[in-house]
């Protein structure tokens, strides 16, 4: 479920972008460490595989068909951190070239599918040490979590959804989750026959870090949305709360003060500037966190697609 732009309220997408960006930076670092960066081609090609695999129709009964979503399958084969990065790359590609999901809503979609979907899908697999039930439950949980999160965010944004439709979508989610679980299991079994050992067997609950990460980001998101929805404007209040706001206003005092005095007739302008400043602030915070997390190299200003591949 890719949420387009224009549906989420500023506080929801703002909060989710703030949560998702550092999480992606952290996961990129983790994936890089446990998967050494020379494996970049593997991750990219597996992302392309997910697109291609969605062309294969699985009969679901009644003449309808479904297709693989793949978050859980990626987690089983690449490990959850690498799978999160691949899913993030897929979602960004879908938003950019297929207009499937919005750009401002990208953080939200990444959180739903690439972080929560992947890690919670990996959880049963890790806990049941990769058994059949673990594979099935993982596929099911990943889709269920992503879809419910998307619905919750729409509700939190004030899209009025009557209870009847909520119940209906709940039922639909459960059905599609079961289908995703069954497809994931079928593909995993076929894979195990063709190429035994393709699944990365979880080393017990080595995924504790992952659990902590998942729980932390979920708590952060919940807290963020809660704080934001009790406040007039999410980003603004976040900025004020952290105290960075006062510093930002000091730095930009001159232009901001001018605007607010001369054009005070439109209260929107104050808020929009605050919003823009908040967005810039979010960007800077994400940048700083990513810088601290990811081993820095001299920035590569231009990069072309590799034409010299196979």
């Amino acid at each position: 479920m890719h949420i387009p732009d224009g549906f989420l309220s500023t506080r929801v997408w703002g909060t989710m972008d703030v949560v998702a960006a550092p999480a992606v930076a952290l996961l990129a670092k983790r994936a890089q460490r446990e998967f050494d960066h020379h494996k970049v081609p593997l991750m990219g090609v597996m992302g392309a595989f997910i697109f291609a695999a969605q062309m294969i129709n699985f009969p679901v009964g009644n003449g309808t068909s479904g297709h693989l979503v793949g978050a859980a399958l990626l987690a089983y084969t690449l490990g959850p951190a690498a799978a999160s990065i691949v899913m993030t790359a897929i979602l960004a590609t879908q938003a950019l070239i297929f207009q499937d999901g919005g750009l401002l809503a990208l953080g939200t979609n990444i959180f739903n599918m690439a972080i929560a979907g992947v890690w919670l899908g990996y959880l049963p697999f890790a806990m049941l040490r990769g058994g059949k039930a673990g594979v099935f439950l993982g596929g099911m949980l990943s889709l269920l979590v992503s879809a419910s999160l998307a619905l919750t965010e729409l509700l939190a944004s004030g899209v009025p959804i009557p209870p009847a439709i909520l119940a209906l979508s709940g039922a639909l989610f459960v059905v599609s989750a079961v289908i995703e679980g069954a497809i994931t299991l079928a593909v995993v079994q076929a894979l195990e026959r063709m190429q035994p050992g393709v699944l990365r067997q979880p080393k017990g609950l080595n995924s504790r870090t992952g659990l902590v990460l998942g729980a932390t980001s979920a708590a952060l998101a919940a807290a963020g949305i809660f704080v934001a929805s009790t406040r007039p404007d999410g980003i603004e209040s976040l900025a004020q709360r952290t105290g960075i706001w006062s510093r930002v206003t000091t730095v930009f005092r001159a232009p901001m003060a001018d605007y607010q005095t001369t054009l005070a007739i439109t209260p929107w302008l104050g808020r929009s500037l605050a919003g823009l400043a908040g967005l810039a602030l979010v960007y800077v915070v994400c940048l700083v966190i990513s810088r601290m997390l990811v081993a820095s190299r001299p920035p590569l200003s231009a990069a072309a697609t590799p034409r010299e591949g196979v």
């Binding site: 930076a25 990129a28 670092k29 990219g44 090609v45 697109f51 990065i85 691949v86 990069a303």
Partner: peptide, 28 residues
């Protein structure tokens, strides 16, 4: 990348984009 998106992610996206149509054709 100029806007400082994680370089690792950008590289994965480069490969994804490069092989997207190749694999879709393979599936076809």
């Amino acid at each position: 990348e100029w806007l400082r998106a994680p370089r690792f992610l950008v590289q994965v996206m480069q490969f994804l984009y490069r092989y997207l149509l190749v694999l879709i054709e393979e599936a076809g």
